[in-house]
């Protein structure tokens, strides 16, 4: 399964970036073989709709789940309409920690019904 994480440096051991649309880097990791690739977030300086643009990137890369600190209303709608699963970092400090917890099923999933009101 392909998972995207928002991180502050292009590495799995980097600190997490709590922002989705304006995170510094996006890490795409395949949980089947733990291979990862880091991408600069092109929408970080976008004057408007950074969340939508980042969501577009994630969808175009066939990601099935995203882990971040939080999701803005536009990003949420964009990711939701592409049926992507969303998870929150909670107290995770590094990307590696978050992906381990994700695999162990210990990350909180965003409850879409709670966020829509």
């Amino acid at each position: 399964m392909k998972v995207a994480l928002t991180v502050t440096e292009p590495s799995l051991d980097a600190k997490i970036d709590p922002r989705f649309g304006r995170s510094a880097f996006l890490l795409l990791i395949d949980t089947d073989n733990d291979q990862w690739e880091a991408f600069t977030n092109e929408s970080i300086n976008s004057p408007s709709g950074a969340g939508v643009k980042t969501a577009q990137f994630v969808v175009d890369h066939k990601v099935k789940a995203v882990i971040s600190g939080d999701f803005g209303p536009n990003a949420l709608r964009a990711l939701q309409s592409a049926c992507i699963l969303l998870y929150l970092y909670g107290k995770c400090v590094t990307g590696r920690e978050a992906i381990e917890k994700f695999k162990a099923g210990q990350l909180q999933q965003v409850n879409l019904l709670d966020e829509s009101d």
Binding site: G49, A55, S81
Partner: peptide, 23 residues
């Protein structure tokens, strides 16, 4: 449509085109 939009107000997400009226 999404390529031309300077405000990221329209996006093609999978098989859907989504419009963000507030953007």
């Amino acid at each position: 449509c999404s390529e031309v939009c300077q405000f990221n107000a329209i996006a093609v997400l999978g098989k859907k085109v989504v419009v963000f009226p507030q953007l």
